[in-house]
Amino acid sequence: MEPLHSSFTDIVNEEVIYQNPLLFLKIWELSSDSALFGPPAPWRWHSHRQVEFLVVTEGLLAIQTKHEHTVLSAGDVMVLGSSQPHRTYKYSADSLRQIVFQIDLKQHFDLSTMPYLHTFSELTYPLDQFNELFRSNPAVKQTAYSLILQIYEESLSRQIGYELAISAAIKNLLLLLLRNDNRDLSAHAEDSGIARLRPALDYIDEHLSERITVEDVCSLLNLSYHYFIKYFKKAMGISFVDYVNYKRIKKAERLLLTGDLSMMEVSFEVGILNMAQFYKLFKRHNQCSPKEFKQRMRSQAGGTPLLAQAD
């Protein structure tokens, strides 16, 4: 087997094009009936900022990460954290069927579920630790397997309400991991200080169209600057600036979908006065420009399938 360090500098940074820009995911099936198996040449590493779940429905799949080499069989599930280098290959001559599910998990948290973002943000708890849960708890693995297959089937059918079904399945998957993890994450969530930050979170929501500074929020909570920024990141799993930008872009998405404001008006409404900065932040969160986002969503509303095209 090729050593881990031999080609680690040659990692392909993969851009994930979402099948639906509001669901922030891509899910598809890979299959091979060829008798050929084993590591290809060259056997390349790749990574992406989205979390990836792998589900094997038939055959054997080998996966190598910087920490381990694993072989999955039918019914197995594995999660790969954000930007984690990995590579795979067909492990036997038998047919192989696998579901690849890539998702930006943080986009599926709203204000009511934000206290649990830290569990999945990977700042404190690497997501690959959930793989031990799949190995040690067959019931959890089977439920995760079923939920991911449900997401795949809904993405194929695109029946009315499929977005609701997919969102519900994603939340059930997160809940499954949260409630069955062996670590005492519930105690951490209770002590994470969200209640103390509530005035700050409310202030951000109420002043998104204005300039928001750390100093304003610090004075609101009567905390020092340095203590506040550390406290906020520990409690929320995301920095203060990133959280404010996240909320601004979520508001911009709503304005683009529900109104006829110009791009400049939308940018100003969410408190970003620099258009270049607005476009940069929007594309960082959605992998497309505001205009492309609006066109895609209008196309979807009219019944035309979304095209998975590069921006």
Rank of each mutant, 00 (worst) to 15 (best):
Q102V: 04
Y89Q: 04
R97A: 13
K90H: 13
L105G: 04
M114A: 14
L117W: 06
F109Y: 05
I103H: 03
Q107D: 11
L105P: 02
F109D: 01
E122R: 03
D110R: 00
K90N: 10
S95W: 00
A93I: 08
Y116C: 11
T119E: 12
D94L: 09
P115Y: 04
P115K: 00
D110Y: 00
D94C: 03
S95G: 07
S95V: 03
V100T: 13
R97S: 15
S95H: 09
R97N: 15
Q102R: 13
L117E: 06
D110S: 03
I99W: 01
I103R: 01
S121W: 02
Y116L: 14
S112F: 04
F101D: 10
Q98N: 14
P115D: 05
R97M: 11
M114R: 07
K106E: 14
I103F: 07
T113M: 07
L96R: 00
L105M: 11
R97G: 12
D110L: 05
L105I: 15
E122L: 05
Y116I: 11
K90P: 10
L96M: 07
T113E: 11
S92E: 12
E122P: 07
L111K: 08
I99Y: 06
S95L: 01
F101H: 02
K90T: 09
H108Y: 03
Q102K: 14
D94I: 02
Y91R: 13
H108N: 06
S95M: 02
D104Q: 12
K106Y: 12
H118F: 15
D104A: 14
L96A: 01
L123F: 02
D104E: 15
Q102I: 04
L117Q: 09
H108E: 07
Y116K: 12
F120G: 04
S92I: 01
H118Q: 11
A93G: 15
F109G: 01
L105H: 06
S92N: 07
F101Q: 09
P115A: 06
L123D: 04
L111I: 15
F109A: 04
D94W: 00
K106S: 13
Y91D: 15
M114W: 07
Y91C: 12
D104M: 09
Y91K: 14
Q102G: 09
D104P: 00
L123S: 08
F109K: 00
L111A: 15
S95Q: 10
F101M: 05
L123I: 05
A93C: 13
T113W: 00
S95C: 11
S112K: 08
I103L: 10
H108L: 03
K106C: 05
L117V: 01
F120L: 03
Y89V: 06
F120Q: 02
